[in-house]
Design a protein around this nucleic acid. Structure first.
Lengths: 352, 352
DNA sequence: TTTAGCACTCAGAGGTCGTGAGTGCTAAAC
DNA sequence: GTTTAGCACTCACGACCTCTGAGTGCTAAA
């Protein structure tokens, strides 16, 4: 099914006009706007054709046309022009990213916030490890008689810590011994293998009778369990209401509840390769709750088996070109920040 | 202005019925419900009195009564019975808290999620340090040739870390020297005093020419800056829609935007003493956006100058008693978890 | 193949009307 | 003085109608 040039032009005009105004587009508006030198009647005929092809539809007999999901799909695949980011946009993004000297989860939630601000849609961000999380290394830092810090380096290059107070005395030598035992017994193994037996054996090995081993092992297990379930962030929910399709409270509620639920977020679309973005329109979404919303996602690469996704959710009437471009730029920036990671000056010095 | 017993009974009945049904309450309903042995006409007279006192109001002439903000206030101050938590509730809370072996920010966001689930309102959680944040201690952990971990202990007993890759070689001795310099020069001082001069001096002192000092100092500064601006979490936004007063999209939008903004959250009410809860009804709220919503907050104490607040936001028509009780229980649990902090088994063994 | 012309359709705004829950008031009863 | 029965009154809400105008589909001529 090949579209004539004129049909393409008209479909494109309908999509773009509708994205802009949120009102069904009539034949006259098309003629005025996109400088076709034909009459509205001709456009009407063409639109009727496009409708029978399933690319446009009528809310009711006497109103203008609106793109169908399939219409948007054709637009996205064939008609859409690549959006060039304005200097202002790239500046904002670069500045926001550069200021980020934080821990991974903070970086992620900040990236979500940034995305949401820049697109005016709710944004989500998540990190996905492609391999089973294990601990690479333990360090125990002595603080005072009753206090020490557990520092754990995971194989996905994130670091977790916990400050521990205990009612019993904590000697530096004890910590040295404990950390040796943990580095010997608890590194490189998944959470399931941290059995009570292993813990008991480690208690014997370190001569611990005060529950140190139990505390540290407990932290390790908890950590690996939550690392498995991935971290997700959702921000900018209230942006949903800026779009007329979400004036319907029930619809807004459905989508928001879905987005508020971590399990929902994890099921959202994922693009295949880093740097690319993926657009999922209306019923293409697997989730029932998103059947009349669209999702745009981009993937970033944080090196060392750690990848992540940032995405936005909005009405099908969305400026796909602009959103995808911004998302990609942010994702690339994140890849650069996290993977290269040489967090010295000048993220904006690279050529973009 | 002292209320007669009967008036109290009627006001209380109106509030409780209205909280339950969300519909204006008529005189007949009161008679049926709260077992007063008087006629509806008498109740009507009493209600007219209560209205002239400003405790009840009429949406329109021919509808039942609804409590005013002042009416709720009287109810909360004088008439409300203390809500006893069910065993199921306390169990849920204990279980959720006990499983928490995480870092502070994670604990907080989890507490918010829990609160929101248990109350069916959007919840917020924030940590407030009553003193200026400074760093108590630096540790640098050598990982490999190009990698080390910065671990920083703040005076509010939170620990922050960052994994650093650098293109230059990192010797363990260098890190030892650096950590000595940082512990000497950068501990106990606020962010403003970490001047370029100090950084330059530290570079000379440690003989650093590869930018290590700059990286670590950058992390320290960034850390203190964000510690100053406090951490805030908001969860459960979508619960708003479960309440009929937020069927109005614009109203929901206003409140949600307000809650999505960190600066807004920081301005929400705070209770004075830990363990207590505070209820702010409708126009008592300073924020224009919350003039017809209510806020219930509870404070918890994490020892060592660190305090925090959890709260929920909902319509003025709220089961204050239940919400306040749950919030307090969660806050107490958090205090226990964070302050005592001996995270050994059995948070639920204490008597509650 | 395109276009002018025209009848047709239908959402949405605005108006009218009936219904019923709940009131305020009055006058009688306690 | 307080309570109650009775009754007229009010007004939101839903059902129903009408008018309007934008935009269509179709037909017949260019």
């Amino acid at each position: 099914m090949e579209l004539s040039d004129r049909k393409k032009k008209i479909l494109r005009a309908v999509v773009e006009k509708y994205v802009e105004t949120a009102e069904p587009v009539g034949s006259k508006a098309i003629v005025n706007d996109c400088g076709l030198s034909v009459s509205s009647a001709t456009v009407r005929n063409e639109m009727a054709d496009l409708e029978s092809m399933g690319l446009l539809e009528h809310p009711h007999t006497s109103s203008g046309r609106v793109p169908t999901a399939q219409g948007y799909r054709v637009y996205v695949n064939e008609l859409m022009e690549e959006h060039r980011l304005s200097e202002h946009d790239t500046d904002t993004i670069n500045r926001a990213l550069r200021n980020n000297v934080q821990q991974l989860d903070k970086v992620l939630s900040d990236a979500g916030r940034l995305t949401s601000q820049l697109t005016n849609y709710p944004a989500y961000a998540l990190a996905v490890s492609s391999q089973q999380p294990v601990i690479n290394r333990f360090d125990l830092i002595h603080v005072d008689q009753h206090t020490f810090i557990i520092v754990v380096l995971l194989n996905n290059n994130t670091v977790k810590n916990k400050l521990v107070h205990l009612p019993v005395n904590v000697a530096p030598e004890t910590l040295t011994k404990l950390s040796a035992v943990f580095n010997a017994n608890f590194t490189g193994i998944p959470e399931e293998e941290m059995t009570p037996q292993l813990i008991a054996a480690s208690e014997r090995a370190s001569g611990d009778t005060s529950g140190f081993v139990a505390v540290i092992a407990g932290f390790a297990i908890e950590l690996l369990m939550t690392a498995k379930s991935r971290e997700t962030f959702m921000t900018g929910a209230s942006h949903l209401f800026e779009h007329p399709e979400f004036r319907d409270v029930d619809k807004a509620h459905r989508v928001l509840s879905y987005l508020s639920d971590e399990n929902g977020l994890l099921k959202l679309p994922t693009p295949d390769q880093a740097g690319g973005s993926r657009i999922t329109i209306g019923p293409e979404n697997l989730a029932e709750e998103l059947k009349d919303s669209s999702v745009v996602v981009a993937k970033y690469d944080a090196g060392d088996n750690l990848q992540g996704i940032i995405g936005v959710v909005g009405p099908t009437r969305m400026d796909y070109s602009k959103v995808a471009a911004r998302l990609q730029y942010i994702a690339n920036g994140l890849s650069w920040l996290l993977a290269g990671g040489f967090s010295l000056p000048g993220i904006d010095d690279r050529d973009s």
